[in-house]
Amino acid sequence: MIKIDHLTKRYSDTLAVDDLDFEVKPGVVTGFLGPNGSGKSTTMRIILGLDHATKGQATVNGTRYAELRDPLREVGALLDAKAVHPGRTARNHLRALAASNQIKKSRVDEVLDFVGISSVANKKVGTYSLGMSQRLGIAGALLGDPGILLFDEPVNGLDPEGIKWIREFFRALANEGRTVFVSSHLMSEMAVSADEIIVIGRGRFITSGSVDDLTKNAEGTVLARASDHGKLAALVVSHHGVVHDASDDGLTIGGLTSDQVGQLAFDAGLTVFELTPQRASLEEVFMDLTAGAVEYGSQKRDPAGG
């Protein structure tokens, strides 16, 4: 279990993490979601004792990481796949890691095999593609057979096959009862790979819950196509609804249910050709939640996107 206890981190004049407080439980894949620059990596670095917290603390299994005796046996982490000396071979890199935590040498070949880079294990890491480096990073994280695993943006640089592989791999780790904590700035990725999601923006906690909970609570929209879009739009607005998007193809209406829109149209004598409730995608929920929490947002959101 990972426990984040009122954690705050300030770098000179920027507040990277602002009073974060949550727990990551074993047995499920927990997604750590936020836009780029929202403090996910900083939080992970503090969990691993790489950066010092300004206030509060992070503990793993009740202990601060820096106090663990052989930390790789308890926590495996992949923060930055390229954080390896480029002139060293993958095997020697893992061998040194194994030696530092008194892990037996044979384990190096096991993890190399598992991630599928045995054939290039004697090549210098500098020659690796990002995908191969990611696999090496995963091998390093698994070396001590730890009960807690942290991955920072693990799908970056992986091909579709690798992404599929890593999702199944996270699932398998969680099913074994391990704590799996995975960060991403991609909601769509988290929607398929995580069970629980913690959303942060600008270093602050926004919300958490299961993927289903998050979308259930989110406001849906209604797509309506009727004989007079202008009239329908005016009706919607006068009944405290919102027209998000209007075109010849129809109106995207928020704030009202499909039943309410249907009734409005019927009462006004409009012919309705289509009336479709649209459940907010996780992506939209994320955009709504983190709007205003994006450090370098574009001026205007593309209405068709999102």
Binding site: R45, L48, G49, L50, Y65, A66, E67, L68, P71, L72, A77, L79, D80, K82, A83, V84, H85, P86, L97, S100, N101, G140
Partner: peptide, 19 residues
């Protein structure tokens, strides 16, 4: 310094956090 230029200091300190 090669630990800093390559970023491997982070991997090193994750394995041996006692500085």
């Amino acid at each position: 310094t090669s630990e800093y230029t390559s970023g491997s200091i982070r991997t090193t300190l994750t394995a041996v956090p006692n500085r």
